[in-house]
Write a protein that binds this DNA or RNA. Structure first.
Lengths: 237, 237
DNA sequence: CAGTGGTCTAGACCACACG
DNA sequence: GTGTGGTCTAGACCACTGC
């Protein structure tokens, strides 16, 4: 039974939700039982998740869930920032009037969503906007990478409740970015985007730090031998 | 028989070598027979190659070999450039004296390899150098992405014979980059690296254009219905 | 020199596509 | 409606690890 969405998504969600505890060793057999499927789909999913950096696989020792610590999130954001800047720079050069119009439309949609407190809609519109910029840059390979990271970060935002007031800043940033792209000012667009992503990084890092308690576990890198964190993994503050 | 290196590497090589013709539809069954293995390993390999952008997979219609055209190579280089700049900037900030010493040692090795015309050794040293810079940046996720791209581009360099005289420029670039990193001058290191990768892009694109004839196929985007390119795929100029 | 865990094979199944 | 092609299951195999 349970022909739910694909395994990979479920595992990813479970990792981001802390359901699968960070640093745990997992085996294909174990997960196969957990999700009621055979080993092969698990194997596949683990490979792709390794591609996303969520698990590490050592040759004959099983896979290990990657810890979602500030380091990891910071790294992901740095990558995303580099790529997003690359993309917006090209988008500013290649833009067509139609595309600019679509950007404006999406942004308007986002803003009305925020006004009526439809934050799910806003998140979606936000994603569309960034996707459109990616498309405009005509680099499908980079776009693919960004999509992957988006999925990952979306999971984290979901876990660490997004504070609605942040949208004020987001909207303001977007308007300026769109203007720069519309003007074909690649340099301005690049800098604005850089700042935009940097802000998101700051916020998410702060949220994560709060979530894992003020007892910064960042330095507590001692725990090499990985005592399994005592079953109860409910990090709900 | 034939317990050769893993399937994925073989398929990738065959694609880059033009053995598997660009734009061709391939099925798992077909490739399974070709390489004398079962469908599952093929499936896995195709998925990972999709992650690298070498094949595209449409739901129930089989996979298709991605065309290695100037667009593709340019995209890959742009991504690599963005990431490499990110990395070198961090490396310049985080460097330790030991690491700087190792960089110098590797560079020296590279230069002696070039002098004695050991270009294979030079290529390897070159890779080590870039890997070291990646390590110094302490962003294993970005490093993983760069590694993937390196493998891909290495295959292309192999196919399109590398002109040895290019190393003069490479060596000069490296020396300046190392100096900037040693000084902790992130901005200089970033710009130098940016230029360094840009040069590589120019050169490889030129080589590829030559290879595929001066009859720029770039604009010939007509061929949607994909007439299979008449068996003979020997693009050897 | 066991045990554990990843990888492969063969075959069945099932969904979509195309005539 | 038929065929093609992807996906899954079950089980066997084999390498490496750790006693």
């Amino acid at each position: 039974m349970a022909r739910f969405p694909d395994i990979q998504q479920r595992i990813r969600d479970d990792i981001l939700a802390g359901e699968l505890v960070f640093g745990t060793r997992v085996t294909t057999a174990e997960l196969a039982q957990r999700y009621g499927v055979s080993q092969m789909p698990i194997r596949e999913a683990l490979r792709e998740l390794r591609g996303e950096g969520l698990v590490t696989m050592e040759p004959n020792r099983g896979a290990r869930i990657r810890s979602i610590d500030p380091d990891f999130v910071g790294n992901i954001f740095d990558i995303r920032n580099a790529l997003e800047v690359l993309m917006v720079r090209r988008a500013a050069r290649l833009r067509t009037p139609e595309q600019v119009a679509r950007m404006r439309a999406i942004e308007l949609d986002l803003e009305t969503c925020v006004q009526r407190q439809d934050y799910a809609g806003a998140l979606l519109a936000n994603r569309y906007l960034h996707q459109l910029i990616s498309e405009m840059a005509a680099n499908p390979d980079a776009q693919q990478l960004l999509d992957r990271h988006w999925l990952l970060l979306a999971g984290l935002w979901r876990e660490n409740k997004y504070s609605p007031e942040r949208y004020d800043g987001v909207i303001n940033d977007h308007r300026h970015m769109i203007e720069a792209i519309s003007d074909g000012d690649a340099e301005a667009a690049a800098i604005l985007t850089h700042a935009h992503v940097l802000k998101a990084k700051q916020i998410l890092l702060k949220l994560i730090e709060q979530r894992y308690g003020s007892t910064k576990p960042a330095r507590a890198r001692r725990a090499r031998k990985a005592e399994p964190p005592a079953a109860s993994a409910d990090v709900a503050d």
